[in-house]
């Protein structure tokens, strides 16, 4: 698991706390800082890490504690700030995010290849894995999935697909299976911020929530000519 540095926002919260702590001796429990003297960001960090907002000591599947999950890395931090600012993505920020994503990329030693689309389909359909708290997903009992269908259309015959992300129906038949397209698809699954800075899409490779093998299986589901994703839907009156 990656180690993530404490964020500047957290440091700011702690500094504000220290400053406010001496000033607000009248608070009920003595130690609590004056919330009204803190920036919204500093207060949010304080509420998460210092004020018992979450069960931070719970174990996680990747071996750390829940606290690690709440510490933002730079991409999470920049994209949060951008969203809160209400501003559109500017070129400098986009370049910074893309550069961070580029630095994070790791490629399979044996090169990028298509795996088994049938396994890829299971991964695309399964939302299991990495949930913590009142009920932890048990990875020994079931392999984590990628939950692609939560946000994307894939097989054009599947009706229960989400629309938070773009439709990927016919992904391979529209794009072909050149080495460049394989790399492009791998990059998006590994860390989509490389091409889409501040995308909503999870960084499956970067976080290790999908294994190298699982990524190649999902790639096969997207790209293999015989995958259901690349078949024409039957003509019906509805379509």
């Amino acid at each position: 698991m990656k180690t993530k540095p404490h964020t500047p926002a957290l440091l700011a919260a702690l500094l504000t706390m220290a400053a406010a702590g001496s000033a607000s001796a009248d608070s009920a429990d003595g130690g609590a800082p004056d919330y009204t003297a803190m920036s919204p960001q500093a207060l949010a960090e304080y509420l998460i890490f210092e004020a018992g907002g979450f069960d931070l000591d719970a174990p996680t599947q990747e071996g750390g504690t829940a606290r690690d999950r709440m510490v933002q890395d730079e991409i999470q931090q920049i994209c949060t700030e951008l969203k809160l600012s209400g501003k559109p993505l500017d070129r400098a920020t986009a370049a910074r995010i893309s550069a961070l994503a580029d630095e994070s990329m790791k490629y399979p030693e044996k090169g990028i290849a298509l795996g088994d689309w049938k396994k890829g389909e299971q991964i695309a359909r399964s939302g299991y894995g990495f949930r913590i708290g009142h009920r932890n997903d048990d990875h020994a009992a079931e392999e984590p999935g990628g939950n692609c269908y939560a946000c994307h259309q894939l097989d054009p015959n599947e009706v229960a697909y989400g629309t938070v992300g773009p439709s990927l129906a016919g992904y391979g038949s529209l794009r072909g299976t050149s080495d460049a397209m394989l790399k492009h698809t791998y990059d998006i699954l590994y860390n989509a911020h490389l091409y889409f800075p501040c995308t909503n899409m999870p960084r499956f490779g970067y976080h290790g929530t999908l294994t190298e093998q699982q990524i190649s299986d999902v790639m096969a589901y997207l790209l293999a000519p015989d995958s259901p994703v690349n078949q024409q839907p039957p003509a019906t009156a509805e379509r």
Binding site: A44, I48, E62, M70, T80, M201, P202, R203, H207
Partner: peptide, 13 residues
Amino acid sequence: EVLFYRRAGTSDF
């Protein structure tokens, strides 16, 4: 509001 838009965790949500 900050908490609502604060991205974190293994899914960046």
